[in-house]
Design a protein around this nucleic acid. Structure first.
Length: 480
RNA sequence: UCCCCUUUAGCUCAGUUGGUUAGAGCAACGGACUGUUAAUCCGUGUGUCCUAGGUUCAAGUCCUAGAAGGGGAGCCA
């Protein structure tokens, strides 16, 4: 007999028919003549209720069933006499697939802290919160691929291992097969990287952008969606050493086309989740309300989770230049009353988290796109504006999480690009292939990077990035 | 990496100016209960007080160092 997934079963009105469900026990409630088992198979946040009549099922079997055990239950789908559900399964046969000793099984039918669940990351898929997050995560991945597919973009797998040492996007993880205790040395006593596997120094990628640009210079519009690695010793709720990044790169797009695409994409994905993940979103919304119950009003989320998502959908993102942002910040009450930890004084300063949050959460009260940053605080590949002082960069700032997208129009002029590389000390020799795209048939083009887990934070309402990825990699933590 | 906070039962936490056998709620287990919804009621047990030193007649409590976790900052997506 085939297995019925709980998600479909709960929607079914075929009462009277024989069904088989398999899943993990969430709770068992027992009274004199009857017992109830809440069973979950991961297909939905909702459990199916198994009704156990002691006349039909042996009682010693029932004593072996505890929270966490896995069961195969065959029985009749019946209309529920209780009030919590429409249908339930009246068990005819229960097979225990795997027991779970209650003295050892760490998950209990009660609320656990997220910190505790992180320590048992191998089991936290069995919780409501974590299974909801991961079902939504999948829907998001799917929505992103669908959005770009509908737009005619081509997905490119850029390399995980790169030799490029010039991207300037943070500390990198070295990839090597050399013996760390006894590496081959050159005549001058240095490590001889020529003897390494690739015949040169290699690292895990910190960005697929440069390779993405190469692909766009032929395919037109491409995107990457892959793992990215940063060896920064960052210990915050917004950083991972291994995370997933979406990087579209588009030929013939200027900075405005770029912004339009990013805003359209974010809204598409959010709309998709609202339309396709209502059960899980509703659960996460309730979870958030409960979690924030004890907090003072000003520390709570200003919107309910789904309201927040709808708000993003229904409002245009604010678009301002860095210079406008600077004026808003400098003239703000916060700044005049010296309430910022870092006072806003001189044009050219790099905005701190507190400034970004002020713009998004206090001033505009919606997502903000800041463009045309001073060239000195941005990367070498960004296109220089006519003023010679700013570059065509754009950062999208979201409430609570800060920068969610960073992008720019790229410098397509070979001479200007070389000048910027010289100014910023970027080695040109090993990037000959990148420069070639400006040498042969160069075109205006743009792109951006979107931190997938940061988007997950926003959509799920979770506070710590370690709870929106199955197995977080952070400094001093690679247990699972 | 820097600043602040935390670490006591399976989980969440209390533990007074240092003082005898270290507590609560939940979970678990046993029993009761005609259908429960994180059931309810009664009962039972639970400890490397993070680690290593130190001060003291005496340390869960004070001091030093370290580890892990959390919040914030930097770096960034």
């Amino acid at each position: 007999m085939k297995r019925n997934r709980i998600k479909e079963l709960l929607k079914s009105d075929a009462t009277g028919s024989e069904v088989r469900v398999m899943g993990w026990v969430r709770t068992k409630r027992q009274s004199k003549n009857v017992a109830f088992i809440a069973l979950n198979d991961g297909s939905t946040i909702n459990n199916v209720q198994i009704v156990v009549d002691f006349a039909k099922i042996q009682e010693d079997l029932l004593q072996k069933i505890h929270t966490g055990a896995s069961l195969s239950v065959t029985g009749e789908l019946i209309e529920s006499q209780g009030s919590g559900q429409k249908v339930e399964v009246l068990a005819k046969e229960i097979i225990i697939l795997g027991e779970a000793d209650p003295d050892e099984y760490p998950l209990q039918p009660k609320r656990h802290s997220l910190e505790f669940l992180r320590e048992i990351a191998h089991l936290r898929f069995r919780t409501n919160t974590f299974s909801a997050i991961n079902r939504i995560r999948h829907q998001m991945i799917f929505a992103i691929h669908r959005f770009f597919t509908e737009k005619g973009f081509v997905n490119i797998h850029t390399p995980i291992i790169t030799a490029s040492d010039a991207e300037g996007a943070g500390e990198m993880f070295r990839v090597t097969t050399l013996d760390p205790k006894n590496p081959p040395l050159t005549e001058t006593g240095e490590v001889d990287w020529k003897a390494d596997f690739f015949g040169r120094k290699t690292n895990l990628t910190v960005s697929g952008q440069l390779e993405g640009e190469l692909a766009a210079m032929g395919l037109g519009e491409i995107y990457t969606f892959g793992p990215t690695f940063r060896a920064e010793n960052s210990n915050t709720s917004r950083h991972l050493a291994e995370f997933w990044m979406i990087e579209p790169e588009m030929a013939f797009y200027d900075i405005h086309d770029n912004m339009d695409l990013a805003e359209e994409m974010l809204k598409y994905v959010i709309r998709y989740i609202l339309e396709n993940a209502d059960d899980d979103l509703s659960f996460l919304s309730q979870r958030l309300i409960f979690e924030e119950k004890g907090l003072p009003q000003d520390k709570r989320s200003p919107f309910e989770l789904k309201e927040k998502l709808r708000f993003v959908l229904e409002n245009d993102f604010a678009r301002i230049t860095y210079t406008e942002a600077f004026d808003i910040l400098r003239n703000s009450k916060m700044n005049k009353k010296k309430r910022f930890q870092f006072p806003v004084q001189e044009w050219g300063f790099d905005m701190q988290s507190e400034h970004e949050r002020y713009l998004v959460e206090k001033h505009f009260k919606k997502p903000v796109i800041v463009t045309d940053y001073p060239k000195d605080i941005k990367s070498f590949y960004m296109k220089l504006n006519e003023d010679g002082k700013t570059v065509r960069a754009m950062d999208i700032l979201f409430p609570q999480i800060g920068e969610i997208v960073g992008g720019s129009q790229r410098e397509e002029n070979l001479e200007l690009l070389i000048r910027r590389m010289d100014e910023m000390g970027v080695p040109k020799e090993e990037m000959w292939w990148y420069l070639d795209t400006r040498k042969f048939g160069s075109v205006p083009h743009s792109g951006f990077g979107l931190g997938f887990e940061r988007l997950m934070l926003f959509v799920t309402g979770m506070k710590n990035i370690r709870d929106v990825i199955a197995f977080p990699r952070t400094p001093k933590n690679a247990e699972f």
